[in-house]
Design a protein around this nucleic acid. Structure first.
Lengths: 165, 165
DNA sequence: CTAATATGAATGAAGG
DNA sequence: CCTTCATTCATATTAG
């Protein structure tokens, strides 16, 4: 379908284990999530290329990888959102029943979904991006200064910022 | 993929350790496997919800859990069959070659062949479903009558049935 | 205690 | 956009 490109790690390098699929580096993940949280959830082709070039500084990556990443990100963020809303609704519905409540709602074989305007609505919710486990201490060693530069250039809309006084 | 409802046991009960991930009860496993062996290996959303509701009678479970279960089931059933097939093929191919060949199972990213509907074709092979160890004696105590009702309602297509004289 | 295994969950990639 | 598949990660359980 949308055969954009292919990012091939160098399988010829025995120094690193061959990966059949792209594994985004922590820095790359940070960049991608930052962009996504900045409101750019569906970057056009041009933007995708720019992003890819940025990511390439931290490891091999192709336009397709970036494209897939955003596509999956959108899809899964939406799914989470729907699930949470459904769960909340169900919780309200089940008032009075102390027994089991069924958290129904899940998007599966429901062919056709309907074009929706996915703007920066569901973003900035704290389902865990900033305090991303090992990601935190990863940069404690000061591995990449370029990353910091990039991150600082982003609009701090809902982007990870320490609210520590 | 989609989010999961984190169906946890009651963390308030110190008698049992909290489970970070869903652990299907024996009855639930029986139901799931029965459904799977009935030919429903990829239940649509509606069916998934129904299944989840059924499972909920035996313990907390979410749609996502059911979805994951079927996904993993399909994937692993296939993988095992593929592995067996590969082993057989290799055995035939290596006739005359005294060299030692170890079933490396390396498939690479060689997208699927074309099979879509996995009905009761690969099922009924004896990798252990019916004679499911502890599952058998579990129900010897007559824990759930509802389960029996359900199991009897299934089409005995290739489902576990005692082939006694 | 550590290694191996089983399996629930997460994610990259692809098809439609 | 949606679903689905293959692979991988994480953890629970079991074997040594």
């Amino acid at each position: 379908m949308m055969d954009q490109e292919r990012a091939s790690e160098s399988p010829s390098t025995p120094t690193q284990p061959v990966r059949s699929r792209w594994s985004p580096k922590p820095e790359q993940i940070l960049i991608l999530e930052s962009i996504f949280n900045s409101g750019i959830v569906n970057p056009p082709k041009d933007e995708t290329v720019r992003i890819r070039k940025m990511l390439e500084k931290f490891g091999a990556v192709g336009d397709a990888n970036v494209f897939y990443w955003f596509q999956n990100r959108r899809s899964r963020s939406r799914r989470r959102q729907r699930q949470l809303q459904a769960a909340t609704a169900a919780a309200v519905t089940t008032r009075g029943a102390e027994d089991h409540q069924h958290v129904t709602t899940m998007s599966m074989h429901h062919h056709h979904g309907g074009a929706v305007s996915y703007s920066n609505s569901e973003i900035a919710l704290g389902y865990g991006d900033c305090s991303n486990s090992s990601l935190a201490n990863y940069f404690q060693n000061g591995s990449s200064s370029q990353l910091s530069s990039f991150l600082l250039g982003l609009s701090s809309d809902g982007v990870c910022e320490s609210n520590n006084g």
